[in-house]
Simulated scan of single mutants.
Amino acid sequence: MEVEQTPLPGVGIRYDFATAYGRRLGLLVHRDERVDLVVYAENDPDIVAESVTLQPQERAVLVELLALPPGEDDPESRTHHRTWQLTEDQP
């Protein structure tokens, strides 16, 4: 898989790749260390369809979730914990 790295003067570096289904995804790493996760439009790879700014802790959680399915490692070493909320079905 090829990852394109594009320097953006005054902004940071953009990393992009195409999935097996042809969707383009990327990360924009700003000079101030802010990171945007971007999904490009299906019909135009130059247009950003969605963008989510991630804080450092959010990036760490996303990396963990993508690298290893939850529950398959030592839960004490995780940067996040599962929270379950149980509710009763209403008749």
Rank of each mutant, 00 (worst) to 15 (best):
H80C: 06
V48D: 07
D46W: 02
P9H: 02
R34S: 15
S77W: 02
G12N: 05
L28E: 04
A20H: 10
L66H: 03
Y40L: 14
R59Y: 06
Q55W: 10
Y40T: 14
Y40H: 13
L66N: 03
E42H: 11
G22E: 09
A20V: 10
Q90D: 11
I13K: 01
T53C: 03
L37H: 08
L37F: 15
E58T: 03
R24L: 07
I13T: 15
Y40V: 12
H30K: 08
W84K: 05
P7V: 09
F17H: 05
G26V: 11
L54A: 07
P75A: 05
L68R: 13
P69K: 02
T83L: 09
L86D: 01
E64I: 08
R78G: 01
V35A: 05
P7W: 07
L37Y: 13
A49M: 01
D73Y: 03
R14L: 00
T19D: 12
L65I: 14
I13W: 00
V61W: 03
P7A: 08
R31S: 07
T19S: 15
E4W: 06
P7D: 15
T83S: 08
T83G: 06
D74R: 07
P91I: 01
V38G: 01
L25H: 10
A20D: 13
M1S: 09
P91E: 14
V61F: 04
L8R: 13
R24G: 02
Q5P: 02
R82Y: 04
M1R: 01
E4Y: 06
E88Q: 12
Q90H: 09
E88D: 12
R82M: 01
L27H: 04
P45Y: 02
A67D: 11
L28V: 15
V63S: 12
R23Y: 12
E2G: 07
E58H: 12
L66R: 03
T6P: 02
T19Y: 09
P45C: 02
L8F: 06
T6D: 10
R31W: 04
L27D: 00
W84F: 10
E42N: 08
L54Y: 07
F17D: 01
Q85G: 09
S77Q: 14
P75S: 11
V29N: 04
P9G: 05
T87G: 10
V39D: 09
A41V: 10
P75K: 06
T19E: 12
G12D: 12
A20T: 14
D46E: 13
Q85A: 14
H81L: 09
E58Q: 15
P69F: 02
D74E: 08
E42K: 08
L28T: 12
L37C: 12
E88G: 12
D89Y: 00
E72F: 13
L65S: 03
Q55L: 14
R34K: 14
L25K: 10
D32A: 09
H81A: 13
G22F: 08
G22N: 05
